[in-house]
Every structure is written in C-alpha cells, then in structure tokens.
Amino acid sequence: MGHKVSSLGKTYLTLGFIFLYLPIFILIIFSFNESKLVTVWGGFSTKWYGELLNDKQMLGAAWMSFKIAFLAASIAVVLGALASIVMVRTGQFKGKAAFASMITAPLVMPEVITGLSLLLLFVAMAQTIGWPAGRGMLTILIAHVTFCTAFVTVVVSSRLREMDVSLEEAARDLGAPPWKVFFLVTLPIIAPALISGWLLAFTLSLDDLVIASFVSGPGSTTLPMVVYSSVRLGLSPKINALATIIVLLATTGVLTAWWLARRVESKSIKRPTGDS
C-alpha cells in the first residue's frame, strides 16, 4: 500500500468527516446567533453566553452533574480495579464465573431497567432501614457508581490480563511484600487503564439522563435533565452555547491526552540499534 491517499479515498474521508462533525459545527455556529429562533440566523452575537452565565438553574445543574460525575468516576475506579484484581489475579474460587459475568451485566442492561430497579431498591430501603432518607444527589451517585464500575472493570481487567505476571513475581522475588508489589509495580503499569476508565466513567455519568431521572429527587437535577426538559419546552439558543462550551472542554481534554501520549511515545522512540 502506498502512503498517498487516492482521490476516491480522500472523497470518502471528507464525506465521513462531514457526516460526523457537520452537526457539531452547525451547533457551534448557531451558538453565536443573535436571533431568538434557534434555526434562523440573525447575525453574530455572544449574548447567549452571557445569558447562560446568568441562568442559575442551568449552572447549578451543571455543577451538580460535575460533582456527581467526579465522585462516581473516582469510586468506580477503586471498585472496578478491585473487581479486576479479583477476577484476573486470584485463583479459582466458587462462583468466579458468576461474579465475572454479573459485574459486567450493567453493560448490556437497558438503562430503563437499571433505573427502575434502583428506584424500587431505594424506595424499599428508605421504608425499611430509613437510608437513604430521600432521593437526591446521593442516590444518583450510587446509581452511577453501579454502572460506571462495570465499564471500569472491563477496561482495567483487560489491561491486567495483558500485563506480564512475571513482573509481579519479579518484584516479590526481589523482596517486596504483596502490598508493595501492588503499589510499586502493578499500579503504575495499569495506571493508563485506570485513567481511561476514570475518563470513561466521568463521561458516562455526565451524560446519563435515563437512570438519573428515575433516582433523582427534588433539588437534585442534573444537567442532562435540565437540557432535556428545556428542549421540550422550546429550544433556547442558550443550549447551543452550553453545548459549545462542553465540546470545547472535551476537545481540550482529548487533545491534552493525545499530546501527553505522544510525548511519552517520542521519548521511547529514540531506541538504540543492535547490541553494544
């Protein structure tokens, strides 16, 4: 295969990019729309950004969503890492297969069912043991941790499976007790998987509408819920402004991650040739 892309290939590539990114591009353009009507261009303006900053409800929901996503992702990484170690590193135990398939079940479970079942659980718990007292941020957080843990487990356990077990054995052989082996060798090697698992969990939590709608209570409205309800009442160009900011943040995040990865790679590219 040559390294020049044929003109047909270029056409396909362009069409692919247009298909993927044209909607987002239009959204960004319309976030600078003067007009109150979302679909009619009325000249350039940044007024919707200003209005967004004054919308207490929207900002509050955004803050709530970020808090939940941050906590849910952090807890899910810890639980997911522990589950992965149990699945990959411990020997055979009774119910191992059941554990492995059940921990990843939320991946394939329809969100409506997850949300409904959690709602029923929380109601029953509140009635019997009085905790959690009402539905709010805590219940959303618990719900998000349950499905985020499943995703983190998949990412981390595949990395752990790839990792050469003799690295851990070498550390033990050199005198490190098991807990030190974990912190000095296992953890640094699976760190990239933990980071990507965290990012994945954060995004999923930030994005979730269905499960949050089931288990939220008054005063705990997340951003997707606010956006969804305001869209039903009539689209406001404010949403475009909000979406543009989110796209900008996401792009910055992805570019930073890519830049970091490339820097690590280019460091290791300077390898010597042959044996000295």
Partner: peptide
C-alpha cells in the same frame, strides 16, 4: 514466602519493570 527467601531469579521474559 517468596519475598523473604535468599534466592533471586532471572525470568525468561526478563520481567524488567517497564516504568
């Protein structure tokens, strides 16, 4: 236990810590 033995091993894959 392995970490307290006066024995050290060179592994087939060398098992050098990559980080």
């Amino acid at each position: 236990p392995a970490h307290k033995r006066p024995v050290n091993m060179m592994f087939q894959s060398y098992a050098l810590f990559p980080h």
